[in-house]
C-alpha cells in the first residue's frame, strides 16, 4: 500500500471511530465474527480457537491478528498472487536448494525437498534442543549452516534468514501451532510468561497491557490484536518487507520507552516461546500480511 492509500485507510479508521464515538470496545471477543480465512480458495486457516488451558483466567478464546486487519489487508493474505511475501518465500526455497560452504551441501542434501523435510517444523518452534537449550528456528538454521554445511551463519534479522524462515513457515501453513510448554521447556516458558506480564520502560507497559487487557481497542490508529505470532515472519506493509518475530518483540518493548533486549537474546527466545504458546491451536499462516 502506498502512502496515500495508507493515509486514506487511516482516515477511514478515524471516521469509523468518530461514528462509534470511540467508546471502549470489549476485549477478548471476536473482532470480526463470521469472517473466515481460506488461502488460495483451498487452504483453510484456523483464525479463532479455544484458548489453551494455561491461559485460564486470562483469555477464553484466541484470535489471529488477521481478524483485526482491514478488509484489503485480509484479502492480500488470502491470495498468494496478492501476498507480497511470496517472493521472499521463493527466494528462501532457492537458497534451500543451493549448495554452500565447505562440505558441498545444501539444506536439501540432508532434509530432502523442503515440503517434506520441513513440514510441521514451524509449528513446534521455538523448542528445546538435545543439549537442553531453547532454540528458535533461526538457531536451528544456523546450526545446520555452520556445523553441517561449513557455511557462514545467517544474520538473525537480515534478508537471507528471513527468506529461509518464511520458506520453512510456509511448509506448516494450516497446521495448528503446537509448541511444547512442559518438560524441559517449562522453565523457559515460565520466564517468558513473567516477561509477558512485566511492565517495562518509562511508559510501564507490559505485553499484557495492550494485547491481553486492551485487544480490540485502538491505540491511535492501530487496532490492537492479541499479539499472536502464528503469521510470522510477516510481511509488513509499513516496512515493505518481512519482519522477524524477535524484531517485532524488540520493537514493542522499545515503544514502551524501555531498554530493549537484543534480537537473538535468551530473553527474547523465552518471550517468543511464551507468546507462541498463547497461539497453540491457531494455524500457522505461512507468511501473513499486516499493516
Amino acid at each position: 500500500m502506498n502512502f496515500r492509500a495508507r493515509t486514506a485507510a487511516g482516515l477511514a479508521v478515524a471516521a469509523l471511530l468518530a461514528i462509534a464515538g470511540a467508546a471502549r470496545a470489549e476485549s477478548n471477543v471476536d473482532p470480526n465474527p463470521g469472517v473466515e480465512l481460506v488461502i488460495n480458495g483451498d487452504t483453510p486457516i484456523t483464525v479463532r480457537a479455544k484458548a489453551p488451558d494455561y491461559l485460564e483466567g486470562h483469555l477464553d478464546n484466541i484470535y489471529s491478528g488477521w481478524l483485526y486487519r482491514i478488509e484489503s489487508t485480509r484479502a492480500m493474505e488470502a491470495d498468494d498472487f496478492e501476498n507480497p511475501a511470496i517472493t521472499f518465500v521463493e527466494e528462501g526455497i532457492d537458497a534451500w536448494n543451493t549448495v554452500e560452504g565447505t562440505e558441498g551441501k545444501s539444506c536439501a542434501s540432508c532434509h530432502g525437498d523442503i515440503s517434506e523435510g520441513m513440514k510441521g517444523v514451524r509449528a513446534r518452534m521455538p523448542a528445546v534442543n538435545e543439549n537442553g537449550e531453547l532454540w528458535s528456528l533461526e538457531d536451528y538454521i544456523n546450526n545446520c549452516r555452520v556445523n553441517r554445511m561449513g557455511a557462514e551463519p545467517y544474520k538473525w534479522d537480515k534478508g537471507p534468514m528471513k527468506n529461509m524462515t518464511a520458506a520453512i513457515s510456509m511448509q506448516s501453513r494450516g497446521m495448528p501451532m503446537n509448541v511444547a510448554v512442559d518438560g524441559p521447556a517449562a522453565p523457559f516458558w515460565e520466564r517468558g510468561r513473567d516477561m509477558y506480564y512485566t511492565r517495562y520502560g518509562l511508559l510501564q507497559l507490559s505485553c499484557a497491557s495492550c494485547h491481553e487487557k486492551n485487544n480490540n481497542n485502538y491505540i491511535r490508529g492501530d487496532h490492537l490484536s492479541q499479539g499472536q505470532i502464528v503469521g510470522f515472519p510477516t510481511y509488513r506493509l509499513k516496512k515493505g518487507g518481512l519482519v522477524s518475530i524477535h524484531n517485532r518483540l524488540k520493537g514493542c518493548i522499545r515503544d514502551t520507552r524501555a531498554e530493549t533486549f537484543p534480537i537473538g537474546s535468551q530473553e527474547l527466545r523465552e518471550l517468543e516461546l511464551y507468546v507462541a504458546s498463547r497461539g497453540n491451536g491457531l494455524s500457522v499462516e505461512g507468511v501473513a500480511v499486516r499493516p
Binding site: L11, A14, A22, A25, N217, Y218, I219, R220, G221
Partner: peptide, 9 residues
C-alpha cells in the same frame, strides 16, 4: 485524526 479508545472519553 487517530485518537485511541483504551482509556475513557
Amino acid at each position: 485524526p487517530l485518537h485511541g479508545n483504551i482509556g475513557p472519553n
